[in-house]
Amino acid sequence: MAEPILQLKGVKSGYAGRLVLQGADFVAGKGELTAVIGPNGHGKSTLLKTISGIVRVSEGEISLKGKRLDTLRPDQVVAEGVIHVPQGDLLFPGMTIYENLMMGAYLTREAGSVAERLERVFTLLPKLKDRRNQVAGTLSGGERRMCGIGRGLMAGGEFLMLDEPSLGLAPIVIDQIYEVIFDLRHAGMSILLVEENAERIMDQADSIHLLDNGRFAWTGKGAELMARPEIVEAYLGA
């Protein structure tokens, strides 16, 4: 395994009066594609929100390259290089694609690096360039997803978290989105991916982690998961 970039130790977190993560231990490797799978409502999104600081840690530690994240505010976590592309995109609906992308680079003050990143995002997701002046509230599902990912990339972070990037999209659009994700990974980005459909990332993921009731119940490679049909069946109903 590559050297770790993100590490969780016994993390507990949740919402008012409801603990969701109940002691999660987890490591993601630098430059790797790490996948988190698990049934609905078992805390996958909460895991990402906890890492990005939107949900507070009540016990345990989160660190990025050895630096504690769990004591930081969400904006400070972003400044450390963590990008969170949330489930359901959460675009700014009244802003254009261009303004959404600029919000992604909110913490970057040098105009030069912003322009450079914009160029890279437009190369990776050319559709965004064509539609740069369209208001986000009027985009199709696939365009919204691309805008969400593009906006995340504008931050220029080194650890990218994607929450169910295939959710609600047609198969052909899902393929396009995953092509982009795999490209990013081959370009050396560290990616944490939440995906319901394990088969989709089986071949590409460096490690797969199964989240069950707020704890990691199983960790391994895609091939190992395939060899354990009972796990797939029990947790994912495939």
Partner: peptide
């Protein structure tokens, strides 16, 4: 428009 999303962009 979205408090959570703004926070994820690094807005304090």
């Amino acid at each position: 428009m979205s408090r959570d999303a703004a926070q994820l962009m690094g807005v304090r």
